[in-house]
Design a protein around this nucleic acid. Structure first.
Ligand SMILES: NC(=O)c1ccc[n+]([C@@H]2O[C@H](COP(=O)([O-])OP(=O)(O)OC[C@H]3O[C@@H](n4cnc5c(N)ncnc54)[C@H](O)[C@@H]3O)[C@@H](O)[C@H]2O)c1
Ligand SMILES: NC(=O)c1ccc[n+]([C@@H]2O[C@H](COP(=O)([O-])OP(=O)(O)OC[C@H]3O[C@@H](n4cnc5c(N)ncnc54)[C@H](O)[C@@H]3O)[C@@H](O)[C@H]2O)c1
Lengths: 211, 211
DNA sequence: AAAACATTGTTAATTTATTAACAAACAATA
DNA sequence: TATTGTTTGTTAATAAATTAACAATGTTTT
């Protein structure tokens, strides 16, 4: 299959989450407009995304929830699951680790890393924290592909290059420091202040974003 | 000024952050291509965004960093600052509260709210936690406009309607529950699992998102 | 079993967002 | 002071994302 647009990938992840809650509510079928309402988007958008992943089999009473969940999984999930490490077991690192626990996803947080002896060897939400010096060894042993970077700002750049040189393939960067990584490494960044400033702007303008 | 596209607002916030670090490095002017490099975007994009906010005065040696910071502020910031509350002082609530501390922004986290007696009346990173029952009163007294929702999933919907009925104008939703709020309330949502699943997908595909 | 209705998949149209192209505005250099 | 080089602001072109339109397919109602 052709590589999907990033936006579609994001929505597929969200559809799956919405579908899981649909299932939890004992509904076995959903219409495109129901899925749309849950995500605050249009039904056409939903249908178009599902078209892109070639989701066919449908009766005229909506999509088969279980089937769609599994189809989405077959598209966006790595076949054998994907191992994730948290780098920096501070407030944010702990919040993320806790968040993953119990979520039924195809991803596993298999390790955390820190430099602080107080954090090392502790277990949080079932995840053990190792000294960052063991990164190379454990990266390989545990087959860690993706790192969530949650270290202090002044450690961000050096830690990111350590990750890259140790064979990490994707980085989710929560620090506010813009990272430079090789093209082959997929980098995603998020900053709450940007998000909240956006909320603030549109609250001030008292309207929705144009476009 | 015409309402800006949401994407541009996001980038303005990021420009400002990048500009602050430029200033910290004792540079008083930046070129569009330098700003672009810091955000991994193109110089044209930068120039176009600045055009949209009508940023004029420029000598031929780049943008005046201080001036640009203040111009961006005059566009995206609320004139008198904007007060924010954290709803749910758990792991994530604490991480966000700590994150705001010391960040020079126009926004202030002025209160947190929780139901747990263990959390109420405690102070974290300079922010006091109140019982949620005091929300209405304090919302008004402290002029809280924006709420960051970080309560357990099963409390999300009821808490959101409480926020709305108490006069909150914008919500940053970190729970995984899709909220329904009146049109007049600006709603922004974020889910780490979606972001990390996106990283995972493009790592698997071993390429960048198309488009 | 015909008519009316509901829902999908897909193509076409529209709208947004990004990128390219380039004249104008200097600054530096010869 | 001409010439060369940089960098901007803006218009035009391109590309991406969303929305609209609608035929096809089946379901329900009469
Ligand atoms: N993007 C966002 O929305 C957002 C929100 C909150 C925090 N943050 C950022 O995330 C980062 C962490 O925030 P926090 O509140 O958890 O901070 P924190 O200080 O609580 O945690 C940082 C952790 O990193 C560890 N650490 C330090 N140097 C390290 C190294 N070289 N290698 C591995 N671990 C190291 C520290 O020991 C500590 O445990 C900060 O950069 C902060 O600005 C971002
Ligand atoms: N979007 C993301 O990326 C992301 C990441 C981490 C956590 N989360 C979500 O954020 C939420 C909080 O996560 P957490 O790890 O901080 O959980 P947590 O359990 O540590 O914290 C939740 C807090 O909310 C309080 N609370 C419960 N009911 C409340 C109510 N009615 N009003 C006010 N406060 C109430 C609890 O006392 C607790 O302090 C969860 O919904 C979680 O799924 C989202």
């Amino acid at each position: 299959m052709k590589t999907l647009p990033g936006k579609t990938v994001e929505r597929l992840s969200q559809y799956r989450r919405a579908l899981a809650s649909t299932l939890a509510a004992n509904r076995n079928y959903v219409f495109s407009h129901e899925l749309a309402a849950m995500l605050h988007i249009t039904a056409v958008q939903v249908r178009r995304d599902l078209m892109l992943i070639g989701y066919g089999s449908v009766m005229r009473k909506g999509y088969d929830v279980r089937e769609l969940i599994s189809t989405i999984g077959s598209i966006i999930d790595a076949p054998s699951g994907l191992n994730v490490a948290i780098i920096g077991m501070g407030n944010l690192g702990r919040a993320i680790t806790g968040y993953f626990r119990g979520k039924r996803t195809n991803m596993n947080v298999v390790a955390a890393f820190d430099v602080d002896p107080q954090k090392v060897d502790k277990v949080v939400a079932g995840v053990r924290c190792y000294n960052i010096s063991q990164m190379r060894k454990l990266r390989e042993e545990l087959d860690i592909m993706v790192a969530v970077l949650a270290v202090p700002a002044d450690q961000a750049i050096s830690t990111a290059s350590l990750l890259v040189s140790n064979g990490i393939k994707g980085i989710m960067n929560f620090t506010t420091v813009p990272l430079n990584v090789p093209d082959a490494i997929y980098l995603e960044e998020f900053d709450m202040i940007t998000s909240i400033e956006k909320v603030a702007y549109f609250v001030k303008e008292n309207q929705q974003p144009e476009g």
